[in-house]
Design a protein around this nucleic acid. Sequence first.
DNA 1: TCAAAAGTGTTCTATCTACACCCATGT
DNA 2: ACATGGGTGTAGATAGAACACTTTTGA
Lengths: 231, 231
Amino acid sequence: MTSPSTTPAEPAAHTTPVEARPPLVATIVVILAIIEGRLQVLLIHRTAEPERGKWALPGGRWDGSESLGQRAQRKLVEETGATDVYLEQLFTRSGLDHAQPSVAVAYFALVEASTVRLREEQEWPPAWHAVADLPQLAFENNRVIEQAVARVGAKLDYTNIAYGLLPELFTLRELQATYEAILSRPLDRRNFRKRMLSAGIVEAVPGETRRHGAHRPAQLYRFTSKEPVVL
Amino acid sequence: MTSPSTTPAEPAAHTTPVEARPPLVATIVVILAIIEGRLQVLLIHRTAEPERGKWALPGGRWDGSESLGQRAQRKLVEETGATDVYLEQLFTRSGLDHAQPSVAVAYFALVEASTVRLREEQEWPPAWHAVADLPQLAFENNRVIEQAVARVGAKLDYTNIAYGLLPELFTLRELQATYEAILSRPLDRRNFRKRMLSAGIVEAVPGETRRHGAHRPAQLYRFTSKEPVVL
DNA sequence: TCAAAAGTGTTCTATCTACACCCATGT
DNA sequence: ACATGGGTGTAGATAGAACACTTTTGA
């Protein structure tokens, strides 16, 4: 996809490169899921300095033995056990660690809550936190999460990425609730159904319904594609 | 837009990380300008292996003495002398250099052709190449350029980023030609003018016109803001 | 007076928004 | 029978697309 033109004939480095230390490259992952009807993000408790004791996004050093995307994916699997997820790069930032040259590559992932099994063995295990109500996090992680949510919200409009958040079968109401949780605003039910169906991103599964309470049973739907599609 | 890596699991790296060498971090910049009515990209001639002798995007190693964005910006100034430009991060990719762990952070920049002064002292100086008619470039640089152009094209619709490509004053026809060069399709003149004006991204400069040939002189416009604005 | 680009409005179509009632079920 | 969420259609507003003639100038 990319390519570095490794040093292309810089005539002379006038600036004396003081920073001789090799750069630290890390990935961080914003793992999002819909839990209890709210958009939540997976956070870990920092046990090391800096920012020890604060909640933070999971991530870690990259050692070059795999691609950055694979590194993010593996971190994700470690934390959640979820496999079939949507993963996308957000941005790359330098200078978060003031002690040495550092580069952080941020990703976000959309996972289906029911497939997740969190690690529990630690004193402070990873935990879900509602995005709408976060504490102050380590580094600039609050901003990173904001950006991830904004990106997902924008993409709901013209892609099918919500497939990452929902199980195989779901009702249109559940789909709508997912959209509403991300956009944090209510949507019109009839218009929503019309758009989803006419855009062809979901389809009814014949004969499949879900009965839930003392109501009319709901038709079940599935995504027509579980690959990313741009409308 | 990045695509998700849906690579399956890889439960854990049992393999001992052989890659002990510190990672190389590099930036590359897709520098775009409108020249002779066409969208062109600035390329350098590679004088070192690998891919020696091919055209490639300018870039270079990052040493941690400045932020990644500053590094890209500085490379841009070195190559073009242009200062007042639009610069945005595209994406980050690993593994382009097979010899060692490497990360390339790609940016794209929009510069105004008239402010550019290319370096000429080398045997093979940097040169502009029409995006629509590129040779085979080093690494995967053709794809990187494609992505940059696609991103710019998408953003034309809902931002004012074209300000990076045009001088202080310009005619609406020139603005339209810029859009057409990027989108590589013709636009309707009347609809274009209506949209630009009603969106408020440009405004007429009273009394300023340009006479060019045996035609009616054209009204000159300026951008209402030369900061990035999302509509 | 001619050639060549600048400038300008209206109609049609598609899309988005707002909104209220009946349906199927369990208790 | 009633409470609860499931399911549906229409009308108005808005935004985008298509399209042709007049104006101003230099030669």
